[in-house]
Each structure stands twice: as C-alpha cells, then as structure tokens.
Computed example of a mutant assay.
Amino acid sequence: MSGGNATHVEFKDVCKTYDGRTLAVSHLDLTVASGEFVTFLGPSGSGKTTSLMMLAGFETETSGEILIAGRSMSRVAPHRRNIGMVFQNYALFPHMTVAENIAFPLSVRGVPAAEQASRVGRVLERVRLGAYGARRPSELSGGQQQRVALARALVFDPVLILMDEPLGALDKQLRDQLQLEIKHLHAELGVTIIYVTHDQSEALTMSDRVAVFNDGSIQQIASPSHLYRFPATPFVAGFVGENNQFSCTVTAVEGDTWTLASPAGDPLRAVGIGSCEVGRSVPVSVRPEHLIVRPRDDMRMIDARLEEAIYHGDHTRLRFRTGWGDVVTAKVMRPDELGPLPIGESMPLGWRPEDCRAFAA
C-alpha cells in the first residue's frame, strides 16, 4: 500500500437496482485507504462496474452512502468529485491534438494557459510521450492512446483515479507492459486507484488488494497472494487462478482438518472452510500446481487415468480422468523426473492436505 491508513473511499451498505426487484449491487460495504490500489475483479454482470460508476457519480445508488475523504457524495455532481477517469475506449477527442486532449480538464477548470502547458509537458514526459504532443489520436497506436487517456486523468492532480477495463482493447504483450507502467506510476505518485477488470492476471499483478465480485456482492477482498492461496468460497477458488473442483462427502471433522470421501470412496484430507457436519456433500478445490503425480504414500489420495500430456514450454499439463468421471489437471515443472507417463495408464495422485480446501458454503 502506497499511502497511509486513512480511509479515502467508503461504501456504506450501498445497494443498486434498476428494476426495483433485482439488486445489481447488494449491500456493499467497503473501505479503501488513501494511496491504495484496489481492483474490482469479477465476471460480466457481477456488480463491479456499477459500483465504480456509482463512485464516479455516473450512476445513483438506490440506498446506502458513498463517501470520499469523509464527505458524502450523495449530492455531489460527477465533475465536482475531483476524480480522474480512464476508460477502455480511451474517450479522446479526435479533432484535438494529444496536448489539447490532456489539457482539456485544466481548461474547463480555468487553469491559466501557461500553467496548462507546463503541466501537460510534465505529464507527457511521465507517460513517455514527450515528443507526441502535436499529434492527433488517430496517429497513435492503441497503447499510446491509452497513455494519453492516463495522462489526461493525472494532469489535474485528482484525489482518486478510477479505471474501467482500461487495457481490455489491447493485445496481450502491450497489456502486460502497461500493467507494469500503471503499477509503477501508482508507486511513484501515491494516488488512490480503483481499477475494474475481469482479467485475474491484471488484478494479481497490479493491486494492493483485490475485491472479487459475484452476483452484486464482494465474495472476498484480500491481497493478491492471500486471495490466491486462501480462497474463501468455491467461486473465488474457481475464478482466481486455475482449480480442480469436485464434490466429496464429509466423513470426519477435526478442527479445520476434514476427512472426506470422494465419489469413488477414496479417503481424502483437506482444510475445511466454515462449519460443517458429517455426511454433508461439499465442493473441494486443489490447484493444478499442488496436485502431485505418484506421491509418497502419506500424500496419496486418489487414482486416475492419464488422458493427455500438453507441453507448455516451462511446464507440462497432465490431464487425468478420475474414477468417478471428473477431469483433473496437474501442472508439472519437470515431467521427466516422474519416469514413464504412458497415456491411458492409471496412477496415484495426491496433495498436501493444507493445499486442498473444502467449503461448507
């Protein structure tokens, strides 16, 4: 986190409905610290963009309250919230030069021309476009246009920057490059950023914390590493990173260590999340990199038939069919160390119990 611990943005029991029946955002409670980079991550229709638009003032909350720096935004117009916005489609004026586009927020605020030129020059250098001020947006690449949009959001020193899928229209290589540039700019400036994406890689790469949205509410909010290592719900486990998921029956509960039976009757062990009674069917998740092929006896959990080996350069993915019909995938860094791996052969699979999670809800 780049800033202190002071609360900068706060959602208090915020709800949004468009039809009076279905909640697009449901009882959202969230605080964002000053200088923090928080990403709203989730699938389409999960409520992440609606939450951002309410914060920007482009949507009105049905109930609840949104505060910026302790001030309620209920009666504050969007242009008076001192927020910088960056959109996926850049939203640049085609008839203006790059410099004129960046200067626009300053001109509407009545900043003198000399100061406008000075600020525009500084921010152009910051986004590595110092020589492009006289060009039109149509003369720039997609990545350069997105840098112009970012510069325009930074030029008036906003208290908060909101980014709505800003890299979605770019190719992967450029997207990866701009992710790091935005991350470095955040570290340099210390401004509060709230970023919306459905791309988990962006969320994990850039953020201080990630809020995972689904069905209008936050399923979990945590640092990227905590979110990946300790998902709180089956949805988070499946949406953030890859996961093998299947259903098992709880046969014993000892604290947070559960013993389960697979659909084929194999005794399994996992970390239990929540409170659960014996006999209940629960979803179980284990990541491909935690699935061990031909493990030692104390880690052996199931037997499965190898169906496919897929070479990925730095690793190989092995796809197995379990005895009850599910497909599970193991990510193996050095497959040659496992010995022969003939397609169609059944072999043991396992994991450390602490790397497997079973969810009560």
Rank of each mutant, 00 (worst) to 15 (best):
A261W: 02
E289V: 02
E289Y: 05
T316R: 10
A252E: 15
L204G: 05
L268W: 01
L260H: 04
G255H: 10
N214C: 08
S223P: 00
A203P: 03
L268F: 04
E307W: 02
P224L: 05
G274L: 10
M299T: 10
Q220H: 10
N244G: 06
E307M: 13
G274W: 12
C276I: 14
A203T: 08
N244P: 02
V236K: 00
S217L: 11
A261H: 09
S247E: 15
L204T: 07
D314T: 13
T233E: 10
D199Y: 09
Q200F: 02
S275L: 14
A264P: 03
S201L: 11
F235Y: 10
Y311D: 15
D215I: 01
C248A: 15
P288D: 10
L291V: 10
S201C: 09
E277Y: 05
D303Y: 07
R296F: 08
Y311E: 15
H315K: 11
G241K: 01
V293N: 00
R269C: 05
D303S: 13
R280A: 14
G216K: 01
P283L: 02
V278M: 08
T249Y: 04
Q220L: 03
R300T: 14
I273A: 03
P263T: 10
D298M: 06
G238P: 00
P283N: 06
T259Y: 09
G241A: 07
E289G: 05
T257F: 07
A237E: 04
E308F: 09
G272I: 00
G279D: 11
V240C: 04
T197N: 08
Q245M: 14
P234Q: 06
P295C: 00
V271C: 13
T251A: 13
G279W: 04
R287H: 05
S247G: 13
L260I: 08
G279V: 03
I273S: 03
V282R: 02
H315P: 02
P263I: 07
A252P: 06
Y228N: 04
I218R: 00
S285G: 14
R300L: 13
S281G: 12
L268A: 04
S262K: 09
